[in-house]
Amino acid sequence: MKKLLLVISILTVAAVQAQAQQYTGLEGLLHCPSADMYAKGSGRISLASLNENSVPKHYATDITAYSLAYNPFDWAEISFTGFVRKIGGIVYQDRMASVKFRPLKEGGWWPSIVLGSNDPLSTVSTTADTDGNNSMCNFYIAISKHFAVSAGSIGVHTSYRKFRKNANAIWNGVVGGLTFSPVFYPDARITAEYDGAGINIGADVKFFNHISLQAICYGMRYFNCGLCFEFNL
């Protein structure tokens, strides 16, 4: 029994999780946060195309998001994201910061736990649904645990998330999903998640240690995608 526990423990700790980008530049699932983190000194430049159904309603159009992110420590991620849309020939942009802190790192028997927020600050603080300020504002606590199996690594992720604006309440509550990275290519990952409004599926793959691609079928109907360049600072 002790040997069995030891083997499970080693496999669990050694499980390699592919790193994938969210549109925020932070480690996460597809439309939900996770408690995974990039390594200290990691930097990312990301570009994503988001269907209008996956962003707050007042945008009323598809969004292009770009982000810059870095990890000052193993336990902290910080990013800046710009949401860009073009209406009637005019380019509009919303900016947001995202932060994520990990008080507990995943170990043999316990999961990692993070506290995080997207768009926590605004120059004009408002909860009006039609106002562009704090459009994405949300706070969350996330838990993640990975298990090594013969075919690869399975990640189990759950979060409790609360958006500030009522218009985004469809994404509130308990959300989360499952990830799988195959043993023959640990830098690939497939994900299925529930984001409060529906089921999303997607895949990430990292090439040459620096370039990540992400494809998402949002709500099993709409297509989102992302491109990320990862580097060490």
Binding site: G41, G43, Y70, P72, F73, I78, F80, L121, N232, L233
Partner: peptide, 27 residues
């Protein structure tokens, strides 16, 4: 200001107050 110094890069976060420009923050 808070700076992280890496091999080739330093990244800083700052918060400031000016009696004419008010509060601000950035990187």
């Amino acid at each position: 200001e808070f700076y992280s110094h890496f091999n080739n890069t330093s990244v800083g976060l700052f918060a400031q107050y000016s009696n004419k420009a008010g509060c601000s923050a950035g990187a």
